[in-house]
């Protein structure tokens, strides 16, 4: 039963980690646009920015 002494803190810490991760994702607005998120993975802006030179001022 001595194993409980560190297993319980480990279990609780893992749970708390999940909670903190959720609260962080909520705070950083990851739940604001659930429909958009699934499309954004197709967006390769970050790659394109390196390849193609920036346009001039669009106006």
């Amino acid at each position: 039963m001595e194993v409980l002494v560190f297993l319980i803190p480990v279990a609780l810490a893992l749970g708390a980690l999940g909670l903190v991760a959720f609260l962080w994702s909520l705070r950083s607005g990851q739940y604001d646009d659930l429909d958009g998120a699934k499309w954004r993975i197709l967006n390769d802006d970050d790659v394109a920015a390196e390849r193609e030179p920036q346009d001039n001022d669009p106006t």
Partner: peptide, 19 residues
């Protein structure tokens, strides 16, 4: 987002697809 983001002085442009 790209079109608006390229304009000078724009710090962020974020489109919410849901709303």
């Amino acid at each position: 987002e790209r079109g608006i983001g390229r304009m000078p002085g724009i710090r962020s442009a974020r489109l919410n697809y849901t709303t």
